[in-house]
Write a protein that binds this DNA or RNA. Structure first.
Lengths: 139, 139
DNA sequence: CCGAAGTCTACCTGTTTAGTAGGGTAGAAT
DNA sequence: ATTCTACCCTACTAAACAGGTAGACTTCGG
């Protein structure tokens, strides 16, 4: 399961995608509209800024905004950043790989199956972008 | 990611699948062969017994064994039992569903995408069984 | 009846999650 | 100069979860 933090991150990013090219958005505005605890959100946005997903502007008229075209930010990137590995096992993860003790990966049935699960998941989250989150929201 | 507990459960079940119809297997044997902390394993096996996956026999010549044909025990069942929800979001889970606050599921882009991820995962883990874990292990 | 096994309850320690509270600093607009 | 805003820091809590451990109890076979 994705953590609450990840869910908040996605909600905030969805909002910022909708406001893309409309200038900076206040943290407090996102917090209110999406019902996210303000201080918690502050930290999440900061983390996304450090990861170059977002950028910000200080002072009056300031706020947060997407640094890149939302159609170019893959969901997989966000999940790995905020939530961690996408794979179900460390020995199957591409970005967080860790060898499995006591197990020959070539002969491990579980390994083989989890590779398939990973690939099926990645096929989706590597293709979908922030733009896909927002598109449906306008009825 | 699957918890250590889930990984241990899968290792133990794989071992028991290999020994299927060979009579009860000692906890201590599984613990040694698969390198699982004994007392922790004890709890895991007990839980699997309560869930009717395993059965046990006390006294001399006792131990644990599969209650059902390993070809009939789906991996999805084990994951849900030991690890919890398979879906990435509560609002997308079939067995642990919870409504999402502040979000119309029909218009939520994230919801739509996570349904696809869930279905892609389930297509695999609902089809694969304990038998599939063991098959590959004999070279 | 004895001893080998599983059964059960409880406990423990550390980490992570999900926040809350508060305050001080820096940069930008007016 | 003032005010608005993000930035950044500390510190705290409360709960849940992870990953175990200890030890007494129960049963069953021989």
């Amino acid at each position: 399961m994705l953590s609450k933090k990840s869910q908040y991150a996605f909600k905030a990013l969805t909002y910022l995608t909708e406001k893309y090219r409309e200038g900076p958005v206040l943290i407090s505005e996102i917090s209110e509209k999406k019902n996210i605890p303000l201080k918690f959100l502050e930290n999440i946005l900061l983390e996304l800024k450090r990861a170059e997903i977002l950028d910000s502007k200080k002072g009056k008229g300031g706020g947060y905004f997407l640094k890149k075209d939302p159609a170019k930010v893959k969901l997989a990137t966000i999940i790995r950043l905020v939530n961690g590995p996408i794979a179900m096992l460390p020995c199957v993860s591409l970005y967080f790989y860790e060898r499995c003790s006591n197990c020959d990966e070539k002969r491990c049935g579980l390994h083989e199956i989890m590779v398939k699960v990973r690939d099926a998941t990645l096929a989706i989250v590597e293709k979908k972008t922030l733009q896909d989150l927002a598109d449906i929201e306008i009825p």
